[in-house]
Simulated scan of single mutants.
Amino acid sequence: MRERSRARLTARQDDVIALSHSLHAEPELAYEETRSAAKIADLMEGSGFAVARGVCDLPTAFTATAGSGDLVIGICAEFDALPGIGHACGHNVNGAAAVAAALSLAEIADEIGVTVKLLGTPAEEYGGGKVDMIHGGAFDGVAAAMMLHAGPEDCAGACTLAISSWQVSYTGTPAHAAVMPHRGVNAADAMTLAQVAIGLQRQQMIPGGIVHGFVASAGEAPNVIPARADASYDCRAETLEDLRELQRAIRACFAAGALATGADLEIRSVGNDYVDLHQDTPMASLYADAASRLGRTVMPSEQGMRGASTDMGNVSHLVPSIHPFIGYNTNNATAHHPEFTRYGASDGADRAVLDGGLAMAWTAPALATDASHHTSLLGRLAGRQTGTTVN
Rank of each mutant, 00 (worst) to 15 (best):
352 A>F: 12
41 A>M: 06
101 A>K: 08
194 A>N: 08
22 S>A: 14
307 G>Q: 07
30 A>N: 12
180 M>H: 11
186 N>Q: 07
95 G>D: 01
308 A>M: 06
324 P>H: 00
257 G>I: 06
336 H>K: 01
297 T>Q: 14
355 D>F: 10
345 A>L: 03
17 I>E: 10
300 P>I: 05
235 C>G: 00
342 R>A: 14
131 V>W: 04
161 L>V: 11
288 A>M: 09
308 A>Y: 03
299 M>W: 12
116 V>L: 08
171 T>K: 11
20 S>E: 09
43 L>I: 08
267 I>D: 01
90 G>F: 05
361 A>P: 11
104 S>P: 14
361 A>Q: 03
270 V>Q: 11
320 P>D: 05
146 M>I: 08
381 L>C: 11
129 G>Y: 09
292 S>A: 15
284 A>F: 09
14 D>H: 12
265 L>P: 14
257 G>D: 02
156 A>Y: 04
168 V>C: 03
102 A>F: 13
381 L>S: 06
38 A>K: 15
161 L>N: 08
293 R>F: 00
96 A>V: 05
103 L>D: 07
283 M>Q: 15
67 G>Q: 03
357 G>F: 13
32 E>M: 07
328 Y>K: 00
150 A>Q: 05
123 A>F: 04
124 E>F: 13
61 A>V: 05
155 C>M: 10
190 A>V: 09
365 P>L: 15
77 A>C: 07
26 E>G: 06
228 R>S: 12
202 R>T: 04
230 D>G: 01
238 E>D: 04
62 F>N: 01
342 R>V: 03
5 S>L: 14
50 A>F: 00
232 S>K: 09
225 I>H: 08
140 D>C: 03
306 R>Y: 01
238 E>P: 00
101 A>H: 09
240 L>M: 05
317 H>I: 04
184 G>E: 01
252 A>T: 08
248 R>I: 14
278 H>F: 06
286 L>T: 14
215 V>L: 02
193 L>R: 13
4 R>F: 13
50 A>Q: 10
37 A>W: 06
274 Y>M: 12
103 L>R: 07
358 L>D: 12
160 T>A: 10
128 G>L: 06
135 H>D: 01
37 A>L: 10
306 R>N: 08
333 A>Q: 03
255 A>S: 13
38 A>I: 04
107 E>Q: 02
189 D>G: 02
123 A>N: 05
177 A>K: 10
281 T>W: 00
110 D>P: 10
26 E>W: 13
296 R>V: 15
172 G>W: 10
142 V>I: 12
131 V>G: 03
199 G>Q: 11
10 T>F: 07
107 E>L: 01
296 R>D: 14
221 A>D: 05
14 D>M: 02
195 Q>Y: 14
58 L>F: 04
229 A>Q: 06
363 T>L: 15
220 E>K: 10
304 G>M: 02
2 R>K: 11
239 T>D: 05
379 G>H: 06
278 H>L: 09
351 R>A: 15
154 D>T: 06
292 S>P: 10
160 T>Q: 01
208 G>R: 02
281 T>D: 13
230 D>N: 13
